[in-house]
Design a protein around this nucleic acid. Structure first.
Length: 743
DNA sequence: GCACACACATCGTCTGCCTATGGCA
DNA sequence: AGACGATGTGTGTGC
């Protein structure tokens, strides 16, 4: 189908697509049009990655907007929201407006209401529904990207419930669900009353295979000798072979440590293939990486990048990740070894993909578990760059002949698993039952059952009793904790219940926080509050490593009086969880005591990305705690607020006032304080020369700071810095604010 | 015969990912 | 369960 044959799309679209080099639709796209996506028909598209799913969404959304509607594009990751926005922004020249709403980034609420296309994460959409965003009712088209994630035990139910709510609120809503190839797309189509496009077509050929010994065995029967050198690991041999063909390789491994070790090893394979120009550009990127953070992780990454290799995992700061992704797309990096972050995240295609480890440790299983077929296929799907490579190749590694056969059976010749709803689980229902009642989607037990009937779970299960059983036990829990009131069949949310739902807290987290704050006899300390929020289910835990048990048991005894709620005994089952929450709390306390980022990451065995994540979550939970304290009329709200501000900026109490000034973070605040400027009032009255001296003679910075604090004459012209302008050689004042917590 | 470097064996340790508020100085 | 890396042991070489 040619783009000029498209019906019901805005008139500018065919030409626009032509301008992007799109003349002929890919077969799945043509099928989608035949099924009526441009005419408002709901659709499930189960197609491989990189085979034009986004265009299907764009056809549906622009057509819907042209008819006077409004479209919502739901993504699973924040990082993808940015990527999609950039793609949709090309429509702005035709008068469409695009807005983004995620946890860390929000277009202005009123402006969102006027946007034609809104991009948001599923949790954000859920939250917007709970908080009655006015534009929800105006939606005419919703696109759900990576909808197979409804299978995810933790986040899947949110997507499932949110889609059900949107469809209930808006019966005419066009639903376009985009999925990876899965075993049972018909059930999704059934659930969403949608047409189905199920295709394995790809714009570039993908050859899957297994490496064993000296050879690569491809699925089409082709074999390829590799010439593995003496003592060379298979991964290195494959990377070298790809390099001979001027291609790059993506290696998936099963742990962060493995990712880092593999990258380090592969530098020796890759290094020789770099041109002088590439070396220069990589050196620049390495410098940028070092600027992001001065932790060991950061410098290890920079060292590898200088030699053309990199690792990628969630311990990296997001700036690190972006730098790596970009350098890999620009073909400067010849190999990246990554944990699954990269398989699900932004688009980073590669000539070859190696799935080095196909088993991963699982605590519950007590050992290594094989990856799902879907997951391996998602990784393999990253092979082949459209327009650059003739084909993509993805390889699994076998260590024995038996394993070779097993891998073919397990992953190459096997369809992905069917997707199954995970809604009938306690944590999911606890949260979503409360939200469903609180936001008015159901007002009784029977109403809830009716609502749940609109979910995938109901479409899928033949065991209706299970959901009902879990539901009843969760309703009991919600009533017992004063989130819901029950009167016969009727259910209403209490004012506390409403608050919890709007705050987007897991009710169990809220119950824990309320209990801790209600029973505090004295003003809680920061450590006590950090521990309180660290032990809620909304904060995931740090691992206890060997030696930690003794160390934190000692700390627990030392600070016993500060701890909120009952302290379990060492022989109770919840002791370990309680202790690892203490480890998290102690890490937050270090951060809020102005310890260096590198000291903290070193002490707790984490990466800069982990620290940022924990700080972020703590900040969010403490704001929620502050609201709960206010709601319940508890006297500790100011203490909670103080702890929140301290962790948000990473500062001790005495800097709170200064850090409230935009442009002043933990380091600048501390230096101002040391120079006798102890608060905003001081800053307004201080000698300019002192301010300039404290800010290391940075004129521009000093001017901005003075302006932000509301000083009428911020100019630093002709001002000489006072005192010792300890520029300390590095002069990297940009990095001064530390990489954390500054938005 | 000794010092040193290197190869190999042993033992202990550790193990993926991600989202979420709201309103103001 | 199994890989990494730190530590320990054994072997070979050169002086």
């Amino acid at each position: 189908m040619h783009v000029s044959e498209l019906s019901a799309v805005p008139e500018w679209l065919p030409e626009h697509l032509g301008g992007e080099g799109i003349e002929e639709l890919y077969p799945p796209q043509a099928d989608a049009v035949d099924a009526g996506v441009t005419e408002g028909e709901s659709l499930v598209a189960s197609v491989p990655t990189a085979s034009g799913k986004t265009l299907i969404a764009e056809l549906a959304m622009t057509a819907s907007v042209a008819r006077g509607g409004k479209a919502l594009y739901i993504v699973p990751l924040r990082a993808l929201a940015g990527e999609k926005r950039a793609e949709f922004e090309t429509f702005e020249q035709y008068g469409l407006t695009v807005g983004v709403s995620t946890g860390n980034y929000d277009s202005d609420g009123e402006w969102l209401a006027t946007c034609d296309i809104i991009v948001a994460t599923s949790e954000k959409v859920d939250s917007l529904v709970r908080n009655d965003a006015p534009w929800i009712d105006q939606l005419s088209c919703v696109v759900s990207d990576e909808v197979h994630l409804v299978d995810d035990g933790h986040r899947g139910p949110t997507l499932e419930v949110t889609l059900a709510k949107l469809r209930q609120r808006n019966p005419g809503l066009q639903t376009v669900a985009l999925s990876a190839t899965i075993g049972n797309p018909e059930i999704l189509a059934d659930w969403l009353d949608a047409e189905l496009v199920d295709s394995t077509w790809r714009p570039i050929d993908l050859k899957k295979g297994v490496h064993f010994g000296q050879a690569i065995h491809l699925e089409d029967g082709e074999q390829h000798e590799l010439g593995v050198r003496d003592g060379e690991k298979p991964t290195a041999a494959i990377v070298r072979d790809t390099l001979d063909d001027e291609g790059s390789t993506l290696v998936f491994v099963n742990s962060r440590r493995n990712a880092e070790a593999e990258a380090r090893r592969l530098t020796s394979t890759v290094e020789g293939a770099l041109t002088a120009d590439e070396r220069d550009r990589l050196a620049d990127i390495a410098a940028e990486i070092r600027d992001v953070s001065d932790t060991e992780t950061s410098s290890d990454l920079a060292n590898a990048v200088e030699e053309g290799a990199a690792f990628h995992h969630a311990g990296l700061a997001s700036d690190h990740r972006e730098l790596v992704e970009e350098a890999f797309r620009d073909r400067l990096l010849k190999v990246v070894s990554a944990t699954p972050t990269l398989a699900a995240g932004v688009n980073t295609p590669s000539r070859r993909v190696v799935v080095r480890d196909w088993r991963r440790y699982s605590g519950e299983a007590g050992g290594m578990e094989p990856l799902s077929v879907l997951e391996v296929h998602q990784m393999c799907g990253r092979a082949g760059r459209p327009g650059l490579d003739p084909y993509g190749e993805s390889l699994l590694l076998a260590k024995s002949h038996d394993e070779l056969d097993e891998l073919f059976d397990r992953y190459i010749w096997t369809e992905p698993e069917p997707v199954r709803s995970k809604l009938a689980a306690e944590p999911a229902l606890r949260t979503h039952l409360l939200a469903t009642v609180a936001s008015g989607f159901a007002g009784s037990r029977s109403g809830l059952l009716e609502f749940l009937d609109r979910t995938l779970y109901a479409t899928q299960t033949d065991e209706g009793g299970r959901l009902e059983r879990v539901m009843d036990s969760m309703l009991d829990y919600l009533v017992a904790n004063d989130f819901l009131e029950r009167d016969g069949d009727d259910l209403t949310a209490t004012s506390l219940g409403h608050t919890v739902s709007r705050l987007y807290l897991d009710p169990m987290s809220a119950a824990e926080i309320v209990d801790g704050l209600e029973h505090a006899d004295e003003r809680p300390t920061a450590l006590g509050l950090f521990h309180l929020v660290s032990r809620t289910p909304d904060m995931y835990e740090l691992y206890l490593r060997s030696g930690d048990r003794e160390e934190y048991t000692m700390i627990a005894h030392e600070h016993e009086t500060e701890m909120l709620g009952s302290v379990p005994s060492e022989f109770e089952e919840r002791w370990d969880d309680w202790l690892s929450a203490l480890k998290t709390a102690s890490m937050l306390d270090d951060w809020a005591s102005e310890l260096d980022e590198s000291t903290i990451t070193d002490r707790y065995g984490i990466g800069p990305g982990d620290l940022r994540g924990k700080v972020d979550t703590a900040e969010w939970l403490l704001s929620a705690a502050e609201r709960l304290a206010g709601e319940l009329g508890l006297e500790w709200a100011p203490a909670v607020r103080e702890a929140r501000t301290r962790v948000a900026h990473g500062i001790r109490t005495e800097l709170i006032d200064l850090a409230g000034v935009r442009g002043v973070g933990r380091k600048r605040a501390r230096r101002l304080f040391e120079n006798g400027i102890e608060g905003r009032a001081d800053l307004r009255d201080a000698e300019k020369s002192v301010v300039l001296g404290a800010l290391r003679g940075r004129t521009k910075t000093a001017e901005n700071v003075l302006e932000n604090v509301g000083r009428s004459d911020p100019s630093m012209t002709d001002v000489e810095p006072a005192g010792s302008v300890a520029v300390a050689g590095d002069g990297s004042d940009e990095n001064d604010q530390s990489s954390l917590g500054e938005f």
